[in-house]
Design a protein around this nucleic acid. Structure first.
Lengths: 252, 252
DNA sequence: CGCCTGCTGACAAAATTTGGCACTAGTGCT
DNA sequence: AGCACTAGTGCCAAATTTTGTCAGCAGGCG
């Protein structure tokens, strides 16, 4: 790779990380020596990029340096289309529509020859497996999450017991067969996941919960990691009970 | 002046002129030889700049090298984030990276307060199931699809027989455990799907296939519908042989 | 045709880029 | 204070890129 293109790549790399990145890591990603990386950073700074480097911390790109080109590559466009197709097929209807709308808006500001290929992108998503449908509207749940609102749930757990609890919802997990509402449960004083198809009903309490969504998300991830039963380990128990049978291929 | 900075200057120069400029003049302004200018132009084009040059006229930078400001709703942004997360986790690495890059580029042209929520979006994708990894680089396959290039495959089918065939690839299907390359097989004179993990090797033949990708895709869909064994019915035979065992949840 | 332009290939000289090494220095954690 | 981690600089020889020149091809236009 030539230096000229690498500088642009470096800029994009910095843009992508919203938190400080160590030079060593950037060097690894670009496949250059650390020494060269320092030189590249200096070159970008000399051209006006606002890159801040602190010893012991790493580099951050302060927003505002947009002179360099900013256009989606063919591959990036394909990636967006594929992601949108998945959302349209596997997430809830409202979100799927939102994904389509977003893509349309993006296409509208793209050069014509690029937006032409949107439809014919040859990347396909396997159709959804049969799913436990939720009785409730996930769009509203998402609104509650966004607004950091406490909700009260009437929930039937795996044993069939129905309880009513107040929950601070901060995430929604999309699995193959079910969706999980993840939140802090005031009843249990702990993080809990709720299968959306088992939520019988829910209400906004009107109260805002006293933490930031991002903080809860972070705490939850740390909690899961500590438990060694984390999101990454994808404990099947969370969603594989009551298995759904795969119907035979349609024959008509 | 170093070449890296000069390329940006050249871009800026082109942006300023709204009417065709002769290469000779650009070369004079940048104080380089004409030959070098041609090389610089080529370098920029290789990076995606839409510079048009016509003999007897000059160069024009077609608009579209920069993303104009864009407005997305909160929900649309969330949908894009969710889709990107899925692509990053479930598609191949290069595509995942492209998805991330696309998202940050879009975020860069969004109103500031909006792009802040990117990281903390509370929509999560279930982690990937164990997968049959492909030995081949799917990024290159995607390039071939994009360019409508014939490829020759060495493929080991489900029975273990290895064959060599020329295929017109037009789509890539992402399933939970496998990816399928979908194309027209010259050997069988029919549409065929190839599990990418069973493709031992492949080569570009250099030939372009005589149909449009979009047309093949459409014909294939119709064909599948007619067969009543279509994509929608997701015939498990296509990908569920040689099942992958789900590992027990990590316990350490 | 001549004249303007874009564009490519080859080649050798010139300039830049690169990686490794040694060294300084700031930050944060224990 | 000690330690681990990080940014940043100077130096140098080797590797690589960049550059100009020259030569030639192609396409539009008068």
């Amino acid at each position: 790779m030539t230096r000229a293109t690498r500088l642009l790549d470096l800029l994009q790399l910095l843009r992508r990380h919203r938190y400080p990145v160590a030079g060593a890591e950037l060097a690894r990603e670009l496949d250059i020596s650390l020494r060269t990386l320092y030189r590249d950073i200096a070159a970008l700074q000399a051209q006006g990029a606002h890159i801040e480097g602190e010893p012991g911390v790493g580099y951050v790109l302060r927003p505002g340096y947009m002179l360099p080109p900013l256009m989606l590559s063919q591959e990036e466009l394909e990636a967006l289309v594929l992601g949108t197709r998945w959302v349209a097929d596997r997430a809830d209807a409202r979100l799927g529509e939102a994904a389509h709308n977003a893509l349309t808006k993006i296409a509208a500001v793209l050069p014509k020859d690029m937006s032409d290929d949107l439809e014919s992108t040859g990347l396909l998503v396997a159709p959804a497996w049969p799913r436990h449908e939720s009785a409730i509207d996930l769009g509203d749940i998402r609104s509650a999450i966004r607004a950091e609102q406490c909700v009260s749930l009437r929930y039937t757990d795996l044993k069939g017991d129905t309880t009513e609890r107040t929950v601070w919802p901060f995430a929604l997990g999309f699995f193959d067969h079910v969706r999980l509402l993840i939140g802090w449960c005031e009843l249990r004083q702990d993080f809990r996941s709720f299968r959306t198809d088992r939520i019988k009903s829910w209400d906004l309490t009107g109260k805002r919960y006293p933490k930031r969504r991002a903080a809860l998300l972070k705490a939850w991830k740390a909690h899961k990691d500590a438990e060694a039963c984390n999101w990454q380990s994808q404990n099947p128990v969370l969603y594989s009970d009551n298995p759904i049978r795969v119907p035979p291929p349609a024959q008509s």
